[in-house]
């Protein structure tokens, strides 16, 4: 067990090292920082001086080492555009993205599981067929199209919901939340649905497939033979078995939701990390881009490591041997 843990952590560290190297290379080679930072008519000596003071005359390895040390101590540099520490910027934008992702995840689970069960129990019913057909649309429509259509219908034509931003937010310490005001809650609806749509169809299809599988298993037949009520068999017994893989997939999907919230945040001008990144790209704000890259890399590595370790813990064969 300890070996598994150790090797997983080792792998995680290795991946992060590679990600940080990519992010460092971006710093160093996407445009010349000296050219960006110095005055337009600076002399060659002035530039060389700046280069020396920034440590850019040192060998590459030394520079990478310094970059690593700084990154580990939490210093990700200063945004060219905002002239503020990148860590500060990210901390400021993080709550918006996380709250949006939470809403999207809850939405996709709350709708995806019942719809999946419905499709599994009545595969030939009208409702199940409709849901199946719609899920194809959901899975194949690009996020920005869904977002724009939703804005067009509910914000522009009907005027029911705001088309952009987080609405009013309340600050709780460093965390700003949109959950506590009406306009904040209203603002969640459209971007939440947009972001949830893909995951919702995924979960629905997964639940449907698992449920169909479980329903034909021996232990469900045995439960039927014991004359237990159908509702109890479906929702208490079978559903629990069907949800096992859903837990794994949802965990992994949260990571990609955070990373791929970029499109949704752009469409809805949601002041989260995705928007921060898009703005950084258009202004060649390299420290922000590099930090975003590092952050998303870290997020994926963390989630995957936790899932891997959980697998090792939950693996029934390991359980059986220690029993």
């Amino acid at each position: 067990m300890f070996k598994v843990l150790l090797s997983r952590l080792g792998q995680a560290a290795l991946v992060m090292l590679v990600v940080s190297a990519v992010s460092f290379v971006m710093f160093r080679y996407v445009g010349d920082p000296v050219a960006t930072m110095s005055r337009e008519n600076a002399s060659v000596e002035e530039k060389a001086e700046l280069r020396r003071s920034l440590g850019l005359d040192q060998p590459l390895v030394v520079q990478y080492g310094r970059f690593l040390t700084r990154t580990l101590s939490g210093d990700l540099g200063i945004s060219y555009r905002n002239q503020r520490p990148v860590t500060e910027l990210i901390a400021e934008r993080l709550p918006a993205t996380l709250e949006l992702v939470i809403v999207a995840t809850i939405l996709s689970l709350a709708l995806g599981i019942p719809l999946g069960v419905l499709c599994a129990l009545k595969p030939d019913g009208v409702a199940a067929r409709l849901v199946q057909a719609l899920s194809l649309v959901g899975i194949s429509t690009p996020t920005f199209v869904t977002g724009i259509v939703l804005i067009l219908v509910f914000a522009v034509s009907l005027g029911w919901l705001p088309s952009f931003g987080r609405g009013q937010v309340v600050d709780l310490g460093w965390w700003s939340t949109g959950f506590l005001t009406i306009s904040g809650l209203k603002s969640f609806i459209l971007p939440g649905i947009t972001l949830a749509l893909y995951q919702l169809t995924l979960i629905m299809r997964l639940v449907r497939a698992e449920m169909i599988d479980v329903l034909s298993s021996d232990y469900i037949r045995f439960a039927k033979a014991r004359g237990l009520p159908t509702r109890y068999i479906h929702f208490r017994l079978a559903l629990r078995n069907a949800l096992m893989p859903v837990i794994t997939v949802t965990g992994l999907q949260i990571g990609s939701l955070i990373a791929f919230a970029i499109v949704t945040e752009t469409v809805f001008q949601w002041p989260g990390m995705g928007l921060l990144f898009i703005q950084a790209v258009s202004f060649v704000d390299i420290p922000v881009m590099a930090a975003y890259l590092l952050f998303v890399g870290l997020l994926f590595v963390l989630i995957n490591t936790v899932v891997d370790i959980l697998y090792a813990v939950v693996d029934p064969r390991l359980r059986a041997r220690s029993a």
Binding site: D218, Y219, A225, G227, R240, N241
Partner: peptide, 15 residues
């Protein structure tokens, strides 16, 4: 009517 199935490994719900 009681039922007994063939494979006790699969006729009980593992969860």
């Amino acid at each position: 009517v009681g039922a007994i199935f063939q494979d006790p490994m699969t006729s009980l719900n593992p969860l």
